[in-house]
Design a protein around this nucleic acid. Structure first.
Lengths: 190, 190
DNA sequence: CGAGTCGTTGAACGGAATCAATCGTCGTGG
DNA sequence: CCACGACGATTGATTCCGTTCAACGACTCG
């Protein structure tokens, strides 16, 4: 789904500076969100206090889709860039889908895609060695051999379940080996 | 979604003995599947040859939902019990949704639930220590304090990204500590 | 200009993967 | 009906690598 719901749904735009939260876990969930500008990470914290990034929503993507039928959010949403977020009341979205089957259909396609991404992420996290895990992640994220790091390496680490130090070290090693090339917030796969 | 699509879609029932595949990765994807009896694991194999179980579909559940819009399956589906699988042609399912908005709506709810489950799984896999990871998994799977192990401990290990030996050891340890109780293919949380 | 965050490197420890071996069980086929 | 083979369950020993703790410089933003 590329575009939000035209003008048939009352929406509200939020300006969210980097590091600020859009919503928090356990807050009552009332809205479907859309990233008009910037980026947002969806974060869960394990018992140990480790930050697990279950998803990064970039410009043009929805998030909190899974909470459409929930009463509470089950993760934190935090901006990783200065962002503009549009939010749509859940009930209106649901009503909209009921009245516009084609849109519901599109949404099904979108959700199916999300599931595929999550499965891929599960596959990545299950790779034992840090180096292979990072490589698999890079390959799965790469567009034309280039991966854009959203915000920080720390976020990358949180997505694939490694300590950030490990990621730094392995990225350096990979660069030494000539497998990748870091350039600012981009990583090229050679 | 509890029930399949009534009689409006041409379906076919498959008898699948344990360990037999329903479909394989890269095969052309044409069907949505429903577990009428038994259970199926969805499996990806990492480069290292490790088996990652991205999902276990039990009696009364759909699987290959994410492939509804795909041309090929992206994982293997293998029966973990003697199973009866019903399959529905993708195009007919899609047509059915277009003609029955309420059903499409239900399906959206179903997909949303799947996403939640996958996110939870990601959270579990990111727990560092084996013991805590197993405990979190058990808690998230438990119904009335009881977890039914689908088929084998090996499958459990594959779901949470641990070596099976580690799972055996930690389960024993947890039983020693009086935290759980193993009884056949069930684990009670105390 | 100071607080907070990210990036980076070092050192040490612990725990999970791995290799290996044994036993039990179940299904299959001769 | 029994023997064999395959697979799951279980336990032991060893190795290794990722986490963790720690420290420091760079940078950004308010």
């Amino acid at each position: 789904m590329n575009n939000p719901f035209s003008e048939q749904i009352t929406s509200k735009e939020l300006i969210v500076p980097i590091h600020k939260t859009v919503f928090r876990r356990k807050e009552s969930a009332g809205f479907l969100h859309y990233v008009k500008e910037g980026g947002v990470k969806l974060v869960r914290n394990t018992l140990e206090g480790k930050e697990v990034i279950t998803h990064i929503a970039k410009k043009g993507e929805f998030f909190s889709e899974a909470a459409l039928f929930e009463t509470n959010y089950h993760c934190d949403a935090i901006a990783i860039e200065h962002s503009v977020i549009v939010r749509y009341p859940n009930e209106e979205v649901l009503r909209f889908f009921k009245e516009n089957p084609e849109k519901a259909f599109e949404y099904i396609r979108f959700l199916s895609g999300q599931i595929r991404v999550l499965r891929k992420q599960l596959e990545v996290v299950n790779v034992v060695t840090a180096k292979d895990r990072i490589l698999l992640f890079l390959h799965s994220e790469a567009k034309n051999g280039v991966v854009k790091i959203s915000g920080a390496v720390k976020n990358l680490a949180g997505q694939i379940g490694l300590a950030q130090e490990t990621v730094y070290r392995q990225l350096s090693a990979l660069e030494q080996e000539g497998v990748i090339k870091k350039e600012g917030d981009e990583i090229k796969i050679l």
